[in-house]
Simulated assay, not measured.
Amino acid sequence: MSVPHRAPSTLLNSRRSPLLVFAGQSNRPLAQAICDHLGVPLGHSTTEKFSNDNIIVHYEESLREGDVFIVQTFSTPVSDSIMELMLMIDAAKSASAGRVTAVIPYYSYARSDKKDSPRISIAGRLIADLLQEAGADRILTMTLHAPQVHGFFKVPVDHLSADVVLADHFKRSVPDAHTGVVLAPDAGSIKRASQIARRLDSGLAMIDKERLSDTEVRPRALIGDVEGKTVFIVDDEISTAGSLVETVNIARSMGAKDVYVAVTHGVYTGPAIQRIAALDVTQVASTNTVLVPQSKLDGSNGRLAVLDVAPLFADAITNIHTGASVSTLFT
C-alpha cells in the first residue's frame, strides 16, 4: 500500500504544538499587544492573593502539549512578579504543557551579576536557578543590564535588543540624525551606543567616569565632540534618573544643541519623574518592557515617550515556536 507523499513543512505543521500565550499581572498591555501581532488570543488565567499574602494561579483552559509562553516583567512589586511567574511556570508544567518559555521583557535582577561587596548574594544567578527549578524550558528577555547574566541559565536564552527600535525613533525625531552624536553615559554603554551610531551613521562620544566608592561614581571627562550638535543619549534603563541628570548636564556644558534620550527600560522610581520634568532635554523615551502609568506620563512635563517592542517579541516568539533562527531579528 503506497503512502501519499507530504512535504516536510506540512508534516511539521501537523505535529507542532499549539501556540499559547499567557500573562502575569505586571505588564498585561504588552502581552496583549504581542498577541495582537501574533494573531492569537491572550490566554485566560487568574491570579489571586490571599489575606496572608500567599498567591495562587489558575489556568482557565487546557495547556496539554501546548507551546506555552508566559509574559511577565520584573517591575514593582518585583518580588510578587517573580513569585507569580514561578507559580505560573510550575502550574503550566503540572498541566502537561509541552514546553514553557518565560518571556521576561525586563529582568531587573540582572543588575546583581557579581559579588562586588562582602557577604551578598549574586541575585541574578539565584533568580535564574529558581526559574529553572520551577520548570522553565527557555527564557526570552531584552537588554540585560549585565549581558553575562545570560550565562547564569542552563536552558536556552534568547536575548533581544531594542537597538533597532531606539535608532528608528531617533531617525523619526530628527530627520538629519546622521549629523548628530550618540553619547554613551559610561564605558559600559559604549557597545550599545556604537551599534546605534552605526545605524544612524552618526558620531559617537562617551563620558568617562571614576568610581569613588561602591556606591558613588563621578563624571570625569567627555570623550568626543558634541558642541553645536544634536546629542542622542542611550542606556539600558532609567531608574532614579540621577545618572541621566549628570549626563545631560555634561552634554549641555560642552555645547550640545538638542538632547534626546532613549533607553530600553523606563523604570522611573523615586524622584525620576520630577527630575525628568525639570531636565533640559527635548524628550526621554523608553520602551514598553515596563508599564509606564499615565500618571508618570502626565507628571513628566510632556517629556516622556513610550516606544513599542511588541512586534519584536512577537517575531521572536514566532521564530521560537516554528524553530526558526531568532538571531535573524538583529540584522
Rank of each mutant, 00 (worst) to 15 (best):
S112Y: 12
R125V: 03
Y109M: 14
S108I: 11
I122K: 02
H150T: 15
R125I: 08
G135F: 09
A102N: 00
P156R: 07
L126M: 11
V100A: 00
A136I: 04
G98Q: 07
K114H: 09
P156H: 04
A136V: 08
R119V: 07
I122P: 04
I122N: 06
V165H: 01
S121Q: 02
I120L: 04
Q148K: 14
S121V: 07
K114R: 15
L160V: 08
D158H: 12
G124R: 00
P156N: 06
A134I: 03
K154W: 01
T143M: 08
R111G: 06
S108G: 12
G124L: 05
I139M: 15
A97K: 01
L131N: 03
P118E: 10
V165I: 15
D158V: 02
R119Y: 06
D163A: 14
L126H: 09
T101I: 00
D163P: 02
F153W: 12
L131E: 02
A128W: 09
L140S: 09
P118W: 09
K114W: 03
D129P: 02
T143Y: 09
D163H: 14
A102P: 00
A97Y: 00
S117H: 12
G124Y: 05
I104R: 01
F152P: 15
A97E: 00
A146S: 15
F152I: 15
R119L: 10
H150G: 03
P147K: 10
I127C: 06
R138I: 05
H145Q: 08
G124Q: 03
S108C: 13
A102V: 01
K154Y: 10
R99C: 11
A110Y: 00
T141L: 13
S108E: 14
V103A: 10
K114M: 07
D137V: 05
D158A: 11
Y107G: 05
Y109A: 14
Y106A: 07
D116G: 10
A97L: 01
L166S: 03
L166P: 04
P156M: 09
E133R: 06
S161V: 04
A136F: 04
L144S: 00
